[in-house]
Amino acid sequence: MVNLIAKTPCAGLLPKTIGTVTVTEVNAGQMTLLAPHRGQKKAVSDALKSAVGVGFPAPNRCLGTAPRAMWCGQEQALLIGAACPELAGAACVDHSDAWAIVQIDGADAVAVLARLTPLDLRATEFKRGHTARTLIGHMTGGITRLGAHSFEVMVMRSMAGTLVHDLTQAAENMAARALQGR
């Protein structure tokens, strides 16, 4: 039988360390988009909670660690890192391998992202467990805060190269400024 070799979206592009930030690819495993039918959100949340341990997230929030439920649009969320249970009240679409997800860590992570997104990333406004759908350069995507200097950035897989290019350029600019200021 033919054994197919899976290629991750950012294969050959990451990891990178530039100045104070490191950019690494996140292999999220199985992902499913959940869209509860009208009036079914509570029932879907309860069913999800009993099956995988996380409920349906509120807007702009990410619940759990493994598995996670990440809000990703009006009445939509992504179940990440678990097989999708039977959910009678929701439309479920397999998104495994559909997203390019990268983690950016380091002291300048906020400064680097601030060059690419109009989102308010201040720690008082955008806290750990907060997620947002927003612009990343010219792309629409998602940003999730993992820690004080740690974020996850995701775009559709077809834009993996552009995402890495944009993050690299922003990080190189920040690193160059740090050198100049020395």
């Binding site: 807007p59 009006q74 109009p118 759908r133 927003t134």
Partner: peptide, 11 residues
Amino acid sequence: PICGERDRREF
């Protein structure tokens, strides 16, 4: 109403 105050570029 869902996301809070956001930049005009997102709209």
